[in-house]
């Protein structure tokens, strides 16, 4: 029983990390107007920035020049900053474009970055990656129990990202983002600057995703370029669409359910012999389930809900209007 719990905790950790990215994507795409097909860019930038800042110097057979060995908390801040700066750079040219083009350009940037990780050996150690990385609070508990610690950390990170993205999307700024999402021309007449607002939003999403990238490093204890292919972007998009675009509950739920779906099917296995068959079936089964979900819940499992304010009394409002001679 404890074994199953440990396993659940481990995949829960990964789900929490994906949850952070899904929440960041929801901030851009659900709340805001940005169809970002390159969210993995910031995930990778965050991971690499953190590793370069905190890793030990290279060993003999490795090629990277910098491993600054800084404390982890500095690495996290550095990662968030790197994600923000990267978003700003990518946003400069791409936010001038229309939605559909933004989509293509962000996808292309993600691929360019992956090529950079592969080719800039001196910085990233190329395709071999950087490994043997330390995990936070490692010494606190016995090694086998560390799974729980990392899970707790990831949940804290997830809660922080959840709280922050939620606060942002409910604020006046968040309303402006939603207005841009809904009707850019009309939003402009409300004095909202599309490019500036989008840039702030993009930078925020970049920073959040970069922090999620740090957790990913902790989870895997290494970085290799292969981790940051666009598969992750599509994974997160799918999770968001299943959960419900524009709803933070949906984003969270989508990330967890999608990971659980993938891994709960591991328990179906009967023998080593059927493993190969089952694994290929697994992908098909998940596909089928996704189709069913979208067939019966086209807006996701938790569709976007109305924002509720405590509204003033209607009769009083009508009276007030009359008194001012408006009606």
């Amino acid at each position: 029983m404890e074994g199953i719990l440990l396993f659940a905790i481990s995949i829960g950790t990964l789900a929490a990390i994906y949850g952070m990215v899904t929440l960041a994507l929801n901030l851009e795409t659900g709340t805001g107007p940005l169809w970002d097909l390159g969210i993995v860019s910031f995930f990778g930038i965050g991971a690499y920035a953190y590793v370069i800042l905190t890793a030990a110097p290279a060993e003999g057979h490795q090629h990277y020049l910098y491993g600054f060995g800084l404390p982890m908390w500095l690495g996290v801040i550095g990662a968030a900053l790197a994600g923000a700066v990267a978003a700003w750079f990518i946003g400069l040219p791409s936010l001038r474009l229309r939605k559909e083009y933004f989509l293509i350009v962000t996808l292309a940037f993600a691929e360019v970055l992956r090529q950079l990780y592969i080719n800039e050996d001196w910085l990233t150690n190329g395709v071999a990656g950087i490994y043997g990385l330390e995990q936070p609070l490692r010494g606190l508990v016995e090694a086998r129990q560390y799974t729980y610690v990392l899970f707790a950390l990831a949940i804290c990170g997830l809660l922080a990202v959840w709280a922050l993205t939620r606060m942002i999307s409910l604020s006046a700024f968040g309303r402006a983002c939603k207005a841009l999402r809904e009707n850019e021309a009309l939003a402009i007449t409300a004095g909202i600057d599309p490019r500036r607002t989008s840039m702030v939003l993009y930078v925020l999403a970049g920073a959040f995703t970069a922090v999620a990238g740090v957790f990913y490093v902790w989870y895997n204890t290494l970085v290799v370029p292969g981790q940051f292919s666009s598969d992750l972007t599509f994974f997160v998009w799918t999770a968001l669409i299943i959960g419900g675009v524009g709803s933070s509950r949906g984003a969270l739920f989508g990330a967890f359910i999608f990971i659980l779906l993938h891994d709960s099917l591991r328990f179906l296995q009967v023998s080593g012999e059927t493993a190969v068959t089952l694994t290929s079936l697994r992908t098909a089964l998940i596909g089928l389930l996704l189709i069913l979900i979208l067939r019966f819940r086209p807006n996701g499992i938790f569709p976007e809900t109305r924002v509720v304010f405590k509204l003033p009394d209607r009769a009083k409002a009508a009276e007030g209007a009359k008194r001012k001679g408006l009606a």
Binding site: M167, F173, V200
Partner: peptide, 9 residues
Amino acid sequence: ARPSIFRGA
């Protein structure tokens, strides 16, 4: 409130 990303909730 817009310039602050948190205000106005």
